[in-house]
Design a protein around this nucleic acid. Sequence first.
DNA 1: TTGAACTCAAACACCATTGTTTGAGTTATG
DNA 2: CATAACTCAAACAATGGTGTTTGAGTTCAA
Lengths: 193, 193
Amino acid sequence: MAPPPHAPARRADAQRNIDAILDAAVESFARRPDTTLAEIAKAAGVGRVTLYGHFASRADLVDAAMARVLEQGDAVLGSLELDGDPAEVLERLITASWRLIHQSRSLLVAAQKELSSARIRDLHAGPAARAERLLARGQSEGVFRSDLPTSWLVATLHSVLHGAADEINAGRLKPEDAARTVSLTILAAFAAR
Amino acid sequence: MAPPPHAPARRADAQRNIDAILDAAVESFARRPDTTLAEIAKAAGVGRVTLYGHFASRADLVDAAMARVLEQGDAVLGSLELDGDPAEVLERLITASWRLIHQSRSLLVAAQKELSSARIRDLHAGPAARAERLLARGQSEGVFRSDLPTSWLVATLHSVLHGAADEINAGRLKPEDAARTVSLTILAAFAAR
DNA sequence: TTGAACTCAAACACCATTGTTTGAGTTATG
DNA sequence: CATAACTCAAACAATGGTGTTTGAGTTCAA
């Protein structure tokens, strides 16, 4: 939602509403992937017409919400120190990113319905590349196993993180145990023999 | 779809159509969790009205399709020899059940939208109990790690199997490699230190 | 062979959601 | 303060799916 260069400046109240809508969208989608735009507008304290004034369609809004979440996520991951023992770094990466995934996995479901898979891949490019780089380095340093492709390790990390979110929703896993549990599982699965 | 006791016998053509509808439903949902009933009827070579004649609502059909798939799955799992080294048994269980999961994971998505989570849990009870028993035995025999709850191991197995299906869909994993890849990952993750 | 069970296409009512229009009111900004 | 930007409720059209009814035809089963 950065203003395009040389565009007429947006008014402050409009920008505030756009932010409120995006916040509400992220929160509403987190609860239910098939939320209606009416609900989002209401949650944002804004009329439905105003929402359509800023986002031309449902897909547009999903795209913008997704972009915002992934942008924030990438910022969090970017603040991590990626040098040092890959196993330790991975543990920190899991801890840092797990809550992010927990909060936005329903948004991903909505995105899968509304956006092309190419678009979703593009939106994920930043965070995915960070994880992939770390795992590949761990493999080349002999810390992580090399009998499985790096892409599979990325996928496994992804799956287990999402699985942890499901377990919390099912009441079988305490949120404060999640990062530790995932780490114990993933580190054992990835360790070189 | 077993005829209730003392009900007037169902005619053979009706039973054939019911089977065709269920087959088509399983197959259609596998492609798209939000398939329409019209598509399913068409795929079954049957009129939409006929479908409604046998299944009162969309939820009814999803429930029946889900029950059929899980019943078949439970039968497959039931034919496995569950005694012996837990690690070897787990490997066989993964191989036996993975294609099943691959084929019906979109159906599960449909079920999550249409059925209560309690109902879904009940439908899964059979297969889930088999996996849980095996994992618990492995833990008590010291073959599998005991620093994580059995329910988490079940969840992890579930997540990774579904992740493999996603990887195949994304073209990054060859179907014939799936069972082996999942086994290598899971056995490392579950092994006692 | 006869009646009940079953099938079907067509047409229907229904409902929720998306996206648009209008026209009057409000608020930021120069 | 004047103007353009913005907001809003209400009402609208369009869409697409669900579930029902009808009435005529077909197929099973005794």
